[in-house]
Amino acid sequence: MASYDVMPDVQLYQPAEMDDALELADRFGRDGWILGGGQDTYGWLKDRAKHPKAMIDLNGIEALRGVRKSDDGIEIGAVTTLREIIRNETVNAEYELLALAAGRVASPQIRNVGTLGGNLSQDARCWYYRRGLACYRAGGNICYADSPQGMNREHAVFGASRCVAVSPSDTAIAMVALDATMVVQSVDGERLVPAERFFVGPATHITKMTSMRPGEILTAVRIPSTWAGARFYFEKVADRDVWDFALVSIAAAMQVDNGTIGDSRIVCGGVACTPHRLRDAEKALAGKSLSDETAEFVAPLASRGAKPLNYNHFKLPLLENLLRRAVRG
């Protein structure tokens, strides 16, 4: 068994214009690797578990940076760093959910260079997959995690289909809760994808985490004003306070009027391959007050339909607890 930690040969392109980046993405297709902060890039390459021919570094493209106000909400460039998002006034004032989520990503050092686009597009953290094994997700024909003796404490309890990896992104659940839209560009033009459809599960796309196609670049995220200033709750439970992925996380956006909940979007991370919406709970919450009673009433809905694996049934009570915390008064 070889072990690697030296960067392999790979061409680095640093386009300054979006058109050039799109042209490069188109030219290299599957062999191209879109580079943001590089925090989910260099490991793959140095381990020689992924073999792109070219890296297309987006950091030189000014248009992809920053938080802009739009007619209906805000637009955040894909290479805006998580730190910039955490410190942005508008985000904090109106879409605090995103700031809270971004603030729990990895570690301060990683947030300084890690980008929103990269965080949203990051790959599964399943330890078998990260080992470079030829599992379903890597194009193989087996899942090592969902086996009779598989070590799968961190894996999915919902929506698994052969692969049981979970969505690792903290900002993803916030984006789904905020009903954001992903702006995806290619040489063929622009595609707008609702956050909920941006993330894909193994039943349909077992080797991908997002609906992005080769040659496409996630350029921005648009957050509508629908949920601006709503009541937000974010919590991430991980083994460690920093540099860790969620065992279970929750991002909730609720329209609350006089203590009564109206519409809500409640999304969990770490429990399914995609951000997992608690639709039953959302429905049940409508018209209820923020209270301990409501919390107790809806909590069991969070884990309904869950299928735990060998080592992760703790995620069920945890999920229920996080929902409780989100809707308590």
Partner: peptide, 23 residues
């Protein structure tokens, strides 16, 4: 037999070589 179904969870009965042969 190697996938989870409503009636059973997958087994590890096959080696990966045999599994590959079946595929």
């Amino acid at each position: 037999a190697m996938i989870d179904t409503p009636w059973w969870d997958r087994s590890n009965a096959l080696t990966e070589a045999t599994l590959g042969m079946m595929f």
